[in-house]
Structure formats: structure tokens, C-alpha cells
Design a protein around this nucleic acid. Structure first.
Lengths: 253, 253
DNA sequence: CGATAACTTGATGTGACTCAACTTAAGTGG
DNA sequence: CCACTTAAGTTGAGTCACATCAAGTTATCG
């Protein structure tokens, strides 16, 4: 894990970046990369940090290198709703707009690759190939957000919980590749119950009840608050109310 | 209303297009416009038409010229959830992907400006200024979808209904400018109760009850199933659970 | 004008939120 | 390193908003 703090380019060249080949940066020419190296630097934030507050005129954008960032919207009544989760290689920040409608907050300890927003905006305009990649990424994101909206709306809490567990299990396969064959049976959800509940549009109490129900019926085993073992993938899929194909499609974004 | 059916370029030049200056097309050079003219044509579809089915390999993209298109996702159990509504000047179709995850369906009679997808994709790559505009539009759309997701999740049905009515009232001001001062008091919602319910994540029954409640408490007057008069804007805003500023922000997209 | 669909209204059951107590985990200072 | 404190998570009881099923009413269209 990167412990870099507030230093410019401690990550070395972008070519050493842990998430480089999964970001839009990867399509840049050597000349473009050199320019990116100049305007970017890594920085770490502890869990709970507000990276950018709702409505604030953000002057930074960048990529998640490590950790999870939550994108949330706070209502007048104090309710917070998480409208998105950003994972390593995901882009964060609101390009081409004064301020962000949402707040960016570190859901875990995170390491970011930060870039000056106006600088990166200029960079994009000067490098259409990268901007093209950014458009494709945003189109994928748009589909994913809509897909998730359809899930949180038309499904029961149990279905959402099962879907989330499945998606995180797929995600951890892709990321850690820790132990090959059995990777999918172990799920790490690095979020607090409150954050998961806010993301699923429910409460920590209801969420807890559903997780315990899944455990009682031997679909999962609770290792600890953030770690689960999948005992029956088929049962989990059944509880999700989605087909396996749909789930994989959701997980792939 | 345009009655054009399946004819190539009956709209004449793009410069005669009803929605031209609100679309991404408007930033194109004269040369670009000429090219757009060649690859585009208008076509009308009656209400209920499937413009593109879910999962189908769509070969068309374009702009809505008139009417409302619903973007929906059908679940395994037959439930349909509307994840987006597209209005005149909005772009439809899934660029840079084989198939669309959602179905596009005419919620009213619609007129579209259709373009061959591969052709338009090539056009975008050849015209970075237009692609840049497309990116900006998609970034706005992303914010709007997330904002709407936060509303449908954290709010009661009454709040969603009030929000929808407010948003549609603002939208009709912008579009029709029918009678200036009193424009905002008359709201036209050109969707069926079922479509509205699917969009709000509720049922036609619950929706109807809420609308009737608003009418009984003199917040609105029901002119007919699709037409309402706003009697008390302040009360409507109060029922929405949002601040006026937030509502206007939502409506502006 | 009859038939079908769209919408409204009523009665009822239930999933999930709320409030509250309890248990476990995490962090802090002596 | 352990007692203490505080936060995070779980479990329980009660309530309510909303979905469901069903019947009635109003539009829409051939």
C-alpha cells in the first residue's frame, strides 16, 4: 500500500502507476504521458476525509490508486445517500463544471493521483484520443449508474444485499487474484454497515438483519464485519433476483 | 407536430432542425454540418413503439426532435423500471458499445433525427469539438441520473411525485413558453400513470392516491389525466422535501 | 355505442423504518 | 497491556407507508 503523502510525483513516472493500464491515461502518447507526469501527484487520505465537499468549487480531479471513495448526496433533512462508489483506476472529480453536485469522501484509507482540474481539462482538449477514452469510460459509467438505479428501485433489500455481495465477490477476484480458484468464495466489503446501507438505500438495522438471515441459511459465513465467505453461490444468485448473466454484467463495470 | 415518416432528410438542413441549437450538433463546423446532413434523417414513431429493444445490437443513434422516449430496464420477473426519460434535443442510443443495456421506447408519439451509429462514431472521432460537447453532455447526464437516483431512494412517494410535477412544470416553461407569466402554473405530463409510476419506482395505485391527495389539499388541480394546474407552488415545494434551489438544479438538466 | 384500456378508490397484508436496548469491536490513556 | 470509553454492529418490538388484490369509474377507440 502506498504511503505517499502530499508529495509531488513520488509515484515516479505514470508508467509505474499501479492502476495505469486501467485508466484513460493509458491511451496517451509518450508526449502526453510526459505532460501528465508534470501535472499529477499522488496523495493519501485517511478514512472519513472529505476529499471534496458537496457544492464546493473543486480544483482537483484524478484517479483512485488505492481504496474506495464514496460519492454522496446529502439531503436537507440530514439523510445521506451514496450515489456511487469509486474503486482503484476510477476517475473522480467533475470535469467541465464549476462545482460538484456531490461530495467525495474516503470510505477507506485512500491514495489518489491528483491533477489540477483546469490543467487536465486543457490536456484533454489537446489530446482527443484521451478525451475519447474518457467519453467511453463515462458512457460505461452512465450505464452502470442506471443499472444500479434500477436495482435499488425495483428490488427488495435482500435482493440488493445479495447483489452487492455478488458484485463485490467478482470485484475482489479481478483485483487481488489472491488465491485463484477459491478467490470467489471470499468477499471483502471494505465499507461500514452505514455506508453499505446508504448505498443500498436502506438502514443499518435492516441490512444487518438481511446479512444475518443469509448467514443463518448457510448462504454466507460471516468471518468478521467486513469479510464474508460465500458458501452457496447459487443460493446467493437466487436471492439476488437477477440472472447470473445480469449480475456479471453489473460487476464488470 | 412533425408527421415525417421514414424519409431521408425531410427536415431539410440541420439548420432548420427544431432542436438544433440545443444539441451537440450545434458546435460543428459548416463542413461537419454538411456531413451530418448526409448521415441523418428524421423519422416518426407512434406511442408505444420499441425504438430499440434491450440487449439488441442497435445500429442507430440520434436526437429526439419531438416527444418523450423512455429508457427502461426489464427484470426477469417482468417488472419494468424506467431509468431515464429523454426529451427533445436529448441524444439517444449507446455509442461505442455493441448493444444497449436498456430499451428505448416511445412514451408519446415521437420524432427522431436518426443517424447510422458507426457513421456517427466516425464523425465524432473526426470532429473532436463535437465529441468534446458530447462528453460535456454525458457528464451532465451522469450528474442528473445520480441526482434522480438519490431522490427515488431517499424520499417518500409523495416527495417524488411533488418533485416530478415541479420538474415538469419547469420543463414546460422552457419548452413551450406558451403564455409567459402563467406558464408555470400549468403542467403537462405526457406520460401514462404506469410510466410515471415506473419512473418514480412506485405503482399506479399509490401514484394516483398521491396525486388525488395533492388535489384534495388544493396544491394542484387535475385538469385531466395528463394536465395539471399548480395552485400553490410553495406547498408543492414543501411536499417535495427539497429546497427550491435543488429543485431548479434538477430541472435544469 | 359497445368494448377495451386507463385510471381511481377501497380493503388488507407486509416489508422495512423507527426507537430502544444490548453486544461486540475499536480506540485511548493510565 | 489492560481497564475504560466510544463507536459500530446486532437484536427486538411496534408502527406505518406502500404493494397487492379487487372492484368500480372514467377515458379512448374502433
Amino acid at each position: 500500500m502506498n504511503k505517499t503523502a502530499e508529495a509531488t510525483c513520488l509515484c515516479g513516472k505514470c508508467s509505474n502507476c499501479a492502476v495505469f493500464n486501467r485508466t484513460v491515461c493509458s491511451v496517451g502518447s509518450p508526449e502526453a504521458l510526459a505532460q501528465l507526469n508534470r501535472i499529477s501527484h499522488q496523495r493519501s487520505y485517511p478514512r472519513g476525509s472529505i476529499i471534496q465537499a458537496q457544492g464546493e468549487a473543486g480544483d482537483m480531479v484524478g484517479n483512485i490508486v488505492d481504496g474506495v471513495v464514496k460519492l454522496s448526496s446529502a439531503s436537507v433533512n440530514g439523510t445521506e445517500h451514496i450515489v456511487g462508489l469509486l474503486f482503484p483506476s476510477d476517475f473522480f472529480g467533475r470535469l467541465f463544471a464549476e462545482e460538484s453536485r456531490f461530495s467525495y469522501e474516503a470510505a477507506t484509507d485512500v491514495t489518489l493521483c491528483l491533477m489540477n482540474k483546469p490543467g487536465f481539462e486543457r490536456f484533454l482538449i489537446e489530446h482527443p484520443a484521451v478525451e475519447h477514452e474518457m467519453l467511453k469510460a463515462k458512457l460505461d459509467e452512465l450505464d452502470a449508474v442506471r443499472e444500479w438505479a434500477a436495482i435499488t428501485n425495483g428490488h427488495t433489500t435482500m435482493q440488493r444485499v445479495a447483489t452487492l455481495l455478488y458484485v463485490f465477490s467478482r470485484r475482489s477476484i479481478n483485483q487481488h487474484l489472491d488465491d485463484g480458484a477459491q478467490a470467489s468464495s471470499s468477499v471483502h466489503v471494505p465499507l461500514s454497515r452505514r455506508d453499505i446501507a446508504d448505498y443500498l438505500g436502506t438502514t443499518p438495522e435492516t441490512l444487518s438483519r438481511n446479512i444475518q438471515t443469509l448467514a443463518r441459511s448457510k448462504v454466507i459465513r460471516i468471518i468478521n464485519a467486513k469479510q464474508f465467505q460465500l458458501l452457496s453461490m447459487n443460493e446467493l444468485i437466487r436471492h439476488s433476483g437477477e440472472s447470473r448473466a445480469d449480475l456479471d454484467r453489473i460487476a464488470s463495470v
